[in-house]
């Protein structure tokens, strides 16, 4: 299990890559217009399957919404 802060919430999750994290949470990693950052740095979509998550990482998963 990896201890992560996902969108501000502490969680333990069975995932060691971004792609696994999305899959475990039921988010299609192929879904368009998602973006992910780890510890304040954007992880490009092409690297989601490769970049490893470590306990203590802060993960942001975002998408565009209505805005002004």
């Amino acid at each position: 299990m990896t201890r992560l802060k996902i969108n501000g919430v502490d969680e333990e999750i069975a995932a060691t890559t971004v792609a696994q994290l999305l899959a475990v949470r039921g988010i299609d990693p192929g879904a368009r217009f998602l973006a992910v950052a780890i510890n304040g740095a954007v992880v490009r979509r092409a690297d989601w399957a490769d970049v490893e998550l470590a306990s203590g990482d802060a993960v942001e998963i975002v998408r565009p919404l209505q805005g002004g």
């Binding site: 996902i6 501000g8 039921g26 988010i27 975002v62 209505q66 805005g67």
Partner: peptide, 11 residues
Amino acid sequence: MSIRRISLDSY
């Protein structure tokens, strides 16, 4: 548009 955290339960 804005950029916001996704809802992890309902994307």
